[in-house]
Design a protein around this nucleic acid. Structure first.
Lengths: 207, 207
DNA sequence: CGTAAAATCCCATATCTATGCGATGGGCCA
DNA sequence: TGGCCCATCGCATAGATATGGGATTTTACG
C-alpha cells in the first residue's frame, strides 16, 4: 500500500515542486498540499496521511504549533520538518513538539524522498548538522561539574531533596538525624555556591 | 588529506573485515585496529585518529567507558559506535558518554563507510531505529501536563523560582508584592499537588 | 453588560530553612 | 601516629516558607 503524504508549505512554487516530486514517485501518494494549517484537523481526519511534510514558517499557525497538535491528536502520523531554519531554538522546539524528522530545505530532492520512506519505516531522518546538534544536546558535559565534588552521602541527600523530600523526610529516608541532614545540606550549599534547597535542586536536575 | 580511522572491536574476523574495508577505501586511512581499550590513551596520542569505530562489548574496559575517556581527553576525535546492542540503556549511555554516531552491526558495509565520512563532515549518523529512539526521547510528553494548568503569571513565578529566586526576588523581578507571590505559589501548589517550592521546581524542571 | 477567571494585595502564624558555632568517632594515608 | 576528610549529632535563632482566611481590581468573553 502506498505511503500517504500531505504537505504544508506556504511557498507555492516549492509546494508545487514537492507535490510533483511525491506524485511521480512509486509507492507514494499525495493526499494534500496546503499553504497553511488553518484546517489541519479536518484535513487530517479526511485524508489520514502517514507522513506530513511540514514547513515551520507558515502564516497564522506555525509549523511547530501544528506539529504539536498533530503529534497529540494523530500519533500515528509522523511529521517530517522541512525548513530553512537551523537555529537550535527552533530545531529543538520542533523536535520537542513531536517532529519525527528534520530536514533543511537545501536537502536534495532524492534525499527528501528517501527521508519520507525512512520515516515511514520507523526511522528519524535528520540533516547531518541537525543530527549532530541533537547528539551534542544529549552529551554529558565534559567539564568537571560542581556536583562531582559532593561526597556520596551529600549526593544522596541532594537526590532525596530533589525528589521532593523535606529535611525531616530526608532524615527518615537516610536514617540519620535532622541535624546531620542540615550539616550535609550546608556543605552542599558551599560546594554548589547556592543558598537554598531550590537552587541546589535546580543545579542537580539541570546537570 | 585522508580521514584517519582507528578500530576497537574484539571480534577478530570482524575487526579484520572492517580494517580491510577502511584500508581499501579512497581517502580513508587506517591508523590502528585493536581488540581492547587497555592502551587507548597511548594509542590515541600516537595516532590521533579523526574517527574511532568503537564496539561496546569489549573485554576489561567497555566501549562506553572508553567513549567517555575519549570524549573528555580527545574532543577532536569523533566516536562512532558500532554494536549489536539496541537496548535503550546502552544506546543512551553511549550517547551521553559522548558518542557522535551509533550504528548497529547489521548495517551494510557501504553504509558504515558513508557514516564515517558523515561523522567526519560534522554529521551524526545513526541506524534508523536508533535515531527514532533518540527523537522520541526528546519529545515532550503527549499527556496533558499539570504544568499546562498554570496561568501565565503562575508560570512566570514558577520559572523565577526555578531560577533560584526567593519570594522576595520573585516579587522584585515580577514587580508585584510578596503577598501576591505567595498567592500565586499557593495556586501553583494546588495545581501541581505539591507542598514546597522544591517539589514544584522539580516538577517544572523535569517536565 | 455581566460574570468568571486571573491577578493583585493584606494579615496572621505554625513550621521550616539557613546558618553560626561546636563536638565526636572512623577511615585513610603519608 | 598525627592530620585530614567524611559522617554523624547538638543547639540556637533570624528569617523564610506554607497555609488559613479574606478582599479588590483587571481582563476576557459570551
Amino acid at each position: 500500500m502506498a505511503i500517504r503524504i500531505s504537505i504544508y508549505e506556504d511557498n507555492q512554487p516549492l509546494r508545487d515542486a514537492l507535490s510533483l516530486l511525491v506524485q511521480t514517485t512509486d509507492n507514494f501518494e499525495l493526499t494534500g498540499a496546503y499553504g497553511d494549517c488553518l484546517n489541519l484537523e479536518q484535513q487530517m481526519v479526511a485524508h489520514r496521511p502517514d507522513v506530513v511534510l511540514m514547513d515551520i514558517d507558515l502564516p497564522e499557525i506555525s509549523g511547530i504549533e501544528a506539529t504539536l497538535k498533530l503529534h497529540r491528536q494523530f500519533p500515528d502520523t509522523d511529521v517530517l520538518i522541512l525548513t530553512v531554519f537551523d537555529d537550535s531554538d527552533r530545531v529543538f522546539e520542533a523536535i520537542r513538539a513531536g517532529a519525527t524528522g528534520y530536514l533543511l530545505k537545501k536537502t536534495p530532492p532524492v534525499r527528501i524522498l528517501e527521508a519520507i520512506q525512512e520515516v515511514y519505516e520507523g526511522g528519524a531522518p535528520m540533516s547531518p548538522g541537525i543530527a549532530r546538534r541533537v547528539m551534542k544536546s544529549l552529551h554529558r558535559s565534559t567539564a568537571p561539574h560542581e556536583l562531582d565534588q559532593l561526597t556520596p552521602r551529600e549526593a544522596t541527600v541532594l537526590a532525596l531533596l530533589a525528589a521532593g523530600n523535606s529535611y525531616k523526610m530526608v532524615a527518615a529516608e537516610a536514617a540519620i538525624s535532622i541535624d546531620t541532614v542540615r550539616t550535609h545540606i550546608r556543605r552542599i550549599y558551599e560546594k554548589l555556591h547556592v543558598h537554598s534547597v531550590t537552587e541546589a535542586v535546580a543545579k542537580y536536575l539541570t546537570r
